[in-house]
Simulated scan of single mutants.
Amino acid sequence: MTQPESVQDQDQDPEAAEAALRTVNWLRGSAQNDPAFLPGLLRKGAFAPLVDGLEYARDTGCEDVYWGVCKLFGHYYRASDHGQKFGWYGSGSMGAAVSRLTYWRSGSLGRGPELYLGALIRRRGLPWRELTRACESLRKHDRQPPEWSRLILDLTHWPRPDVIHTWTADFYFHSKEPNPYA
């Protein structure tokens, strides 16, 4: 799968978009080349490599966001073939990703994904617990993850209203479409 193009369009700061993409490229390359990488990433006190994207995060005070998304990446791809199945970059916002969990039961939309979205957007602080649950649910139900570089950029601006609005709009737009994965 190719690198996402929406990252450059998403953020006003091209340097931030490039740093996010470099971080995702590092995650992808490390996960593909070293089977012990993802379990190591999830351990407490994980190593801090010198990666250009992470250097940018340190310089701008966003290191917690970058490392948080690295851990979400680790949660999603651990012990699975999802990298080969869906690619390593993900697709869409977190709202679009959560909408992929929708299912139809007797003609109505299930409420589980809507509850995930509500839990995510209600938080004033960074919603790490909710994001982890959403990524684990996406993996468990065999759904494509969000675009990782876009998630980094969204969370560096959390809880900016336009990010929350985009996640909500993406969720409701995508959940009304027939879901080919359900």
Rank of each mutant, 00 (worst) to 15 (best):
R143C: 13
P161V: 08
G110T: 15
S30T: 03
T23S: 06
M1A: 14
Y89F: 15
T2W: 09
A57L: 04
F37P: 04
P159H: 02
Q3W: 06
L41G: 01
D154T: 08
G61A: 12
E55N: 14
I152Q: 00
Q32W: 06
E136W: 03
E114H: 07
V51C: 07
A48F: 02
P127D: 05
M94T: 09
S149Y: 01
H82T: 05
K176L: 08
C62M: 08
E15W: 03
V69R: 00
G95A: 10
R160W: 08
P161N: 05
G40K: 02
V98L: 14
S6R: 05
Q10K: 07
Y89D: 11
D59I: 10
K71H: 06
Y181M: 00
G53M: 11
A17P: 01
D34H: 07
P14V: 12
E63D: 12
P113W: 00
P14L: 13
A79E: 09
A57P: 05
P127L: 09
L138I: 09
C62T: 05
W67S: 12
Y66K: 02
V7Q: 03
A57R: 05
A16F: 06
A79V: 03
A19Y: 00
I121N: 04
Q84W: 11
G107Y: 14
S137Q: 15
E18S: 10
R150C: 07
P161T: 05
L120G: 04
L120H: 04
E114A: 15
L50I: 11
W88D: 11
R124Y: 02
L54W: 05
D162M: 05
R28H: 03
R133P: 06
K44S: 14
W104Q: 13
T156E: 08
R143S: 04
D142G: 08
F171N: 01
F173K: 06
W167Q: 07
T132E: 15
R22L: 13
G53F: 04
A19K: 00
G110I: 15
W67M: 13
A16N: 03
P146Q: 10
L151C: 14
F47I: 14
S175C: 13
A134C: 13
H157Q: 15
P127A: 11
V69A: 03
G87C: 12
L42M: 11
R78M: 08
Q8K: 04
H141G: 06
T23K: 00
L138H: 04
A16I: 00
F73G: 01
P49F: 07
E177R: 09
L153G: 03
